[in-house]
Design a protein around this nucleic acid. Structure first.
Lengths: 200, 200
DNA sequence: GGTAAACTACACCGTGTAGTGCAAATCGGC
DNA sequence: GCCGATTTGCACTACACGGTGTAGTTTACC
């Protein structure tokens, strides 16, 4: 029966180190030190480095998906002004992506390591669910006559891309600094394009 | 005076190994072996691993930028049917991104390593130039009344994102296989959205 | 065919790292 | 306060890798 608080400390430190260094550069000794735990304990809890990595990433992805749907409810729960609501959502979405060092670092790590760890593909598939949640919201807005949408799933993909991808491209997923104003411009421009194409 | 053919062989092998393994996992011994060259020769030509990496990436980026502008001229050189031309360009653009293993692997590598090598930022900045080339083309189409565009630079960013980012998101920059049909659907849908928003 | 420069083969050093083993210290629950 | 499980500290193995030194071989060029 391992001690859960130790396990949590290890997970937290491991995530930080993996995000900072990448898988190959991250050393288990450093993780153990940063967790305030002996290296032996790390191995007792997680077996080996690969399993530690995959476990930590899986937990993080889950948390991010939950945070996303929560944000979706918050900003698109009750909509009267479509433009304002979608702009608010887009801004928060992009900010979560561009301004949360953890979130963008997870994306970078996923992109970097997915060819080395096929198991990561399943994690990534989970993003599809979040996009379907957005699609449902958009379909709802369409059925109320606030938007003109044929295919809600496609529209959700378009919206996601217009709200976040320009920022991600510019900042390479948060690795290159981009000013708040620039982020806001890019998001606003993208959402406006979406609205222009889907006005009823 | 080093032998240029050796240098080229090293560069080619190094690129292949870095793209396949990432920087940290790539070993100079393997690169030398794959180049059919002694390890000592690698060091005589490139000094150290970091310099080898940065040199090879720089050359590759340059080649990719050239290929992009060439493709731009080919598909958007003389346009009569805007929709057909933009669809053709979008398809070729996305195919180059999604179907060329090298191109997408370079993107993945860039994203993975940019936090470790600040020098890579300059390479990435070069992409801005390609976007401006596209902006010029779009501005031309707008001045001929074929498109309604206020800000050509912004429009170019939107187009690029709509044509490629959905494919990149789905495939994580080529790491996860996506069918040709799916790629075509995603690109077509994105370009159609662009056209709907910018019809004169 | 000779000469200088480039290349090869190989041994070698230092270092960093994944993972293990084990006795002693520590801690939670009774 | 006792007992069993967990954790610790540390030593240790095995190995891979970046980088160097060198003596000898190949190559380009005159």
């Amino acid at each position: 029966m391992p001690r859960p608080e130790k396990r949590a400390a290890i997970a937290k430190a491991a995530l930080a180190v993996f995000l900072r260094e990448g898988y190959a550069r991250a050393s288990v000794d450093v993780i153990a030190a940063e967790a305030g735990v002996s290296k032996r304990t790390v191995y007792n809890h997680y077996g080996d480095k690969e399993n530690l990595f995959l476990s930590v990433i899986a937990e993080t992805d889950e948390g991010m998906a939950e945070a996303f749907t929560a944000m979706l409810d918050r900003t698109l729960g009750e909509v009267t002004d479509v433009e304002a609501a979608l702009l608010a959502f887009g801004r928060e979405f992009a900010t979560a992506v561009a301004r949360s060092p953890e979130r963008s670092a997870v994306m970078r790590l996923l992109i970097a390591e997915i060819t080395h760890f096929p198991a990561l593909r399943e994690q990534w598939g989970g993003v599809g669910r979040t996009q379907r949640a957005l699609a449902d919201r958009l379909a709802d807005l369409a059925s109320r006559g606030l938007l003109a949408i044929d295919d809600p799933v496609e529209a959700a993909a378009h919206f996601g891309v217009l709200a976040t991808s320009m920022v991600n491209n510019l900042s390479l997923y948060g690795a290159v600094p981009v000013s708040d104003e620039r982020v806001d411009e890019l998001v606003t421009g993208g959402v406006r394009l979406f609205l222009r194409a889907h006005r009823p």
